[in-house]
Design a protein around this nucleic acid. Structure first.
Lengths: 222, 222
DNA sequence: CGACTTATTGAACTAATTCAACGGCAGTGG
DNA sequence: CCACTGCCGTTGAATTAGTTCAATAAGTCG
């Protein structure tokens, strides 16, 4: 999924609306801002993100969608997409009906609510990180979250996982500049916190990285 | 960043569980971290907030609850409070049963879902602000959001509304230091963006403040 | 008043940004 | 094949937005 530049003949971004499956190439939109309530996608393969662009070009990515994620779950609450969603890699996704919350029940919906709940929780954690943490803590948080989310989906291999993000994308996720992301990653590498090369991430010491991310409670000098 | 100085009082924070109404004084908890799923409160009067504290004392406030808000709506999705909620002023609140999403319908629930949806939307906006905006934009965003939320509840008086937050609380909301909040407010005052004194906020030019906040360019056409 | 919290100001400092340049690598096109 | 182009990662130097430390004023409340 990382670099498989699959040259597709069709420039159509979506298959016919009656179809369940869709796929997208990097930079293609899964949803546009203020668009009509389209379907909700479940990502089957690849990465996507939601973001907002400020008038002067500053960009902040506000959610990352990995395989298994719904995209975007909170539309089911009645909102319209207020931010575009774009593919970061090649993406395979499944189109799901956009159900109102009161009309839902059953097993699949249970998973869906949990997914929404998780997204809110992650989002809240990022408020703390963006508001109060240092560059290194921010990047550590991101890489750790990626690894752990992928691990939950069985997409890690020992201490490793795919990491297709460019440093500029990492910057837009962490609220830093690409240059500073670069320098921060170098520090993390020399400290042995991460190994990151050729779009693969290896985390030698998960505990140390958690410590560096200052995520939840941890013992520190009193 | 705000130093430790965590002086949350640990008095009894709730009235008897059979009662519908509860009230809290500043620094009292409406909910504690990782507590059992208690009731959901609807704030009837006063302000409260949800926050996270880092081991070294840095604090980030992750949600602000104003009159009319549910506290916290996303618990209905099955999560437990992962962050404490504390009263910022005197608070009157109504205790509501914690309903599972699948068992809900009707008029009141409609409002509840919209409330959750709004909270997610606001939270997403804050990701952008904390990640990518300048100090002045951050503070402008906060004051603007406060004013517009209070206006929706009929709690504004012309161009004015209550603003009980201390500069330190503003700092913990915007991810700045209290000192820098002070200086930023002074700049905003001299630019005529806000008048702020004696816990009252006046916004002479709403449009100018919106501009300064670099929010989405759209008047919220009441 | 006295104790405390909050607001304000100055000066030194630093984490992160900005600007600019260079090298590698992949895709493109002759 | 090679040159060309664009993107991405890397590095250096100068700058700046925001922090930190410290001290003083101003409000609040018993």
């Amino acid at each position: 999924m990382s670099r498989g530049l699959n040259r597709e003949v069709s420039m159509l971004s979506q298959v016919a609306s009656s179809e369940l499956h869709a796929h997208f190439r990097p930079h293609q939109f899964l949803a546009r801002e203020d668009e009509k309530p389209v379907a909700i996608f479940r990502i089957d393969e690849g990465w996507a993100c939601r973001y907002r662009l400020l008038p002067d070009g500053r960009r902040q990515i506000t959610a990352l969608y990995l395989p298994g994620d719904y995209c975007d779950p909170h539309w089911a609450l009645g909102g319209k997409p207020s931010q575009p969603i774009v593919a970061l890699t090649n993406v395979r996704a499944t189109r799901l009906p956009c159900v109102p919350p009161s009309a839902t029940s059953g097993e699949g919906q249970q998973a869906f609510w949990r997914s929404l709940s998780d997204m809110i929780e992650r989002q809240t954690n990022w408020l703390v990180t963006l508001g109060r943490k240092t560059a290194l803590e921010k990047v550590a948080h991101l890489l750790l979250e990626l690894f752990e989310r992928l691990r939950m989906s069985g997409l890690t291999y020992g201490q490793q996982c795919a990491m297709p993000l460019t440093q500029m994308e990492i910057a837009d996720l962490t609220g830093l500049t690409p240059v500073h992301v670069n320098r921060t990653l170098q520090v993390m590498r020399t400290r042995g916190l991460v190994e990151l090369q050729a779009k693969w991430l290896r985390i030698p010491d998960l505990r140390a990285l958690r410590q560096a991310a200052a995520l939840r409670t941890q013992g520190m000098a009193a």
